[in-house]
Each structure stands twice: as structure tokens, then as C-alpha cells.
């Protein structure tokens, strides 16, 4: 999950400095490595920040940044042992507040995660949100996400990992096949209202992604888990392309491009044809494609291959046929 951090901008560096100072005040002596681990940054970023702090301060009475107006550091300890010991402090006594926007982002994030078993204690979550709002320097901006009930499948998944026992469930795949699957849960992922379980599938002996809303009758088994998240390198992408993927040419209304962005592989070219965008999507089979295209009527049209057009046409026609007596 360690997404590689982009290089810090000046504002981020300032936020780091303002957070690092009170942290170093709390820890009278700490190694560069420990501080870096705690903030999840490179040791060199900590060294640079400490060097900057050590020569910073306030103009003071004289306006000349006299010695006593500056932070100071036990330089020998720092340079020889990579240890941080601040020996003089100025101006800063405590940690900064959150900005209104920062607090709003966290509050909305908590609301979004209300289905997680970790968030089951609603009183605790409410008090946490209140603390965030009180700990902000401005009123959190008006940003909100619909909450959800605690999800029982998510709770079982967590139980399974906690107990170290495999999870078993009925799963209906996009092809319409139903099977009992035995899985070592590795990670729960979500995109907006859609939730997924990624795990080691003992039936397929491979990593698989399961939609939570296609899982039925989940139970925790008595078989021990063989793989844990730490043992497996999970690809960052929820849906990985494979060599057997089918490439389909489609026309899309420009405004609908964001809706299908996930299906468009990197490096695919798009051209404009009569005000529509012609591009390619990759799908593992046409069963998924027909559902996707039918849910974007008049917005996405399959151009090629013919087989893909036929599968979509038949799917939609079969659906429409169910209403044939309406006229």
C-alpha cells in the first residue's frame, strides 16, 4: 500500500517543519531513522529539515537573528551519530491545528468509511469528528459523504484475517458461473460505492478480485490461511490487464469519458469522429462488456469487432424483448 510519495512542494515542506518541531520537542533524543519511519519519509528529508530548523529562528530584539533567537542542535551527535537533540527552542510550543479543508477531508473520509467494522462504534466516530472540527483553525468546509450501515461481509472478512482462517463464500462471476470459493483475504478496496475483496483464491491458486455484492453466504472456515498481505505483492491496479484480454473499439460521448476511464488502457490512442471519441477498451470477456455498454445507452457504442457488437446487441435485445407486450 506504500504509494510512492511525490517530492514535497514548499507548502508540504513547511507543514513538515511545523509538525516535526513539536515531535522533536516530545522526543528529547531520537535517531534520524526513527523520525523518518514515523513520518514515512526518507531519512535524508529528515536530515535536511533538521538542518534547516537548527539555523532558523526569529529576528529578535535586534532584528539580527542573534544566537539565542535561533533553534540549536547538538551538532556532534547529529553529524556523527545521526541523532537529533534540539538544545534551544524558539517560537513554537505546540503542534499546529488542521486547516478547515484538512479537517473536512478527514471528516468526509470517515463518513465514507462508515461501513467498516472498525467504524462500528458510532459514538466514538462522532466524537472523533467533533475533535477534528474543534482542532481546525477554520470551520471545516461543507463536504460530505453518505454514511452506510456496518457491512456484515466486511466484518466476516476482518474476522477471518484476525483468526487466521480462510473465508469461504458463494461467488457469481461476471460470466454467470456460481462457485464456492475458499480465499485468504489480503485487502479490501473500494471505489466510490463499489467494494472489492482481493485475496488468494485456493480454487484457482491465484490472486483474485471479488466484488463484495457478488459474494453470498460467507463463512469463516476452520482451515488456516496460507498467505497474508505481507507475503504477497498485490499489484496496485485493481484490474490488471492480461495477455488474453480482448481489445474493443468504441465511440464515446466526450462527457462520458470519465465513466469508462478505468477500462481504457494506458497508451491507447483516441481520435475524434463526428463529435464522438473513438478509443479502445480492454475487457477480459464480452460478458462484462455487454453489461457495461448496456448501462451507458446512447453514450457508448461498440464499433469493432463484430462479435462484440453482436454480443451487446443480443443482450440488449433480449432485455427489450421482456417488454414486448407493452405496446
Amino acid at each position: 500500500m506504500a504509494e510512492r510519495q511525490a517530492p514535497l512542494q514548499a507548502q508540504d515542506k513547511l507543514a513538515f517543519l511545523l509538525s516535526l518541531v513539536p515531535f522533536l520537542m516530545e522526543h528529547e533524543r531520537i535517531s534520524v531513522q526513527e523520525a523518518a519511519d514515523h513520518f514515512d519519509v526518507k531519512p535524508q528529508a529528515v536530515r535536511e529539515a533538521v538542518e534547516l530548523i537548527a539555523v532558523s529562528g526569529i529576528p529578535g530584539e535586534t532584528g539580527q537573528y542573534q544566537h539565542g533567537d535561533l533553534f540549536d542542535l547538538a551538532w556532534d551527535d547529529f553529524e556523527e551519530n545521526d541523532q537529533i537533540v534540539l538544545t534551544n527552542l524558539v517560537a513554537i510550543d505546540d503542534a499546529p491545528r488542521f486547516s478547515g479543508r484538512e479537517a473536512a477531508a478527514l471528516i468526509a473520509g470517515l463518513q465514507y468509511l462508515s461501513a467498516l467494522p472498525e467504524n462500528a462504534d458510532r459514538t466514538a466516530i462522532a466524537s472523533l469528528m467533533t475533535k477534528l472540527a474543534r482542532g481546525a483553525s477554520a470551520l471545516p468546509s461543507q463536504l460530505g459523504v453518505e454514511g452506510a450501515e456496518s457491512d456484515s461481509t466486511l466484518a466476516l472478512i476482518r474476522q477471518s484475517v484476525e483468526a487466521g482462517l480462510q473465508l469461504e463464500f458463494d461467488y457469481l462471476n461476471a460470466r454467470g458461473e456460481r462457485e464456492r470459493r475458499e480465499v485468504d483475504p489480503l485487502r479490501v478496496e473500494s471505489v466510490d460505492a463499489d467494494w472489492y475483496l482481493r485475496g488468494w483464491d485456493h480454487l484457482r491458486e491465484a490472486l483474485r478480485t471479488f466484488r463484495l455484492d457478488r459474494i453470498d453466504n460467507p463463512t469463516v472456515t476452520d482451515k488456516p490461511i496460507s498467505r497474508r498481505a505481507a507475503d504477497v505483492r498485490l499489484p496496485e491496479l485493481l484490474f490488471e490487464g492480461s495477455d488474453t484480454d480482448l481489445v474493443v473499439t468504441i465511440d464515446v460521448t466526450p462527457s462520458a469519458m470519465p465513466l469508462i476511464a478505468d477500462y481504457i488502457p494506458d497508451g491507447s490512442t483516441s481520435t475524434e469522429v463526428d463529435g464522438l471519441i473513438r478509443t479502445t477498451v480492454r475487457v477480459s470477456h464480452y460478458h462484462g462488456l455487454k453489461r457495461l455498454v448496456a448501462s451507458l445507452p446512447g453514450v457508448v457504442t461498440v464499433i469493432a469487432p463484430d462479435e462484440a457488437r453482436r454480443v451487446v446487441a443480443e443482450w440488449a435485445a433480449a432485455g427489450a424483448a421482456r417488454y414486448r407486450d407493452d405496446d
Binding site: 500500500m1 507543514a15 513520518f39 484538512e102 483475504p185 489480503l186 485487502r187 478496496e189 466510490d192
Partner: peptide, 24 residues
């Protein structure tokens, strides 16, 4: 930045039992 400020408070968070990767 909010996480950075949170870390400045010095609290070591519990490693969640199960990994999550939520996304809005």
C-alpha cells in the same frame, strides 16, 4: 498534510488487522 500534522503529535497508529485501500 493532515496526516503529517497527525504524525507530528507522535502517536503510533495500530497496524490495521486487514489492509484497506479505499478510494473516493
Amino acid at each position: 498534510r493532515a496526516v503529517m500534522k497527525l504524525r507530528g503529535l507522535g502517536i503510533v497508529s495500530d497496524e490495521p488487522v486487514l489492509g484497506y485501500a479505499p478510494r473516493l
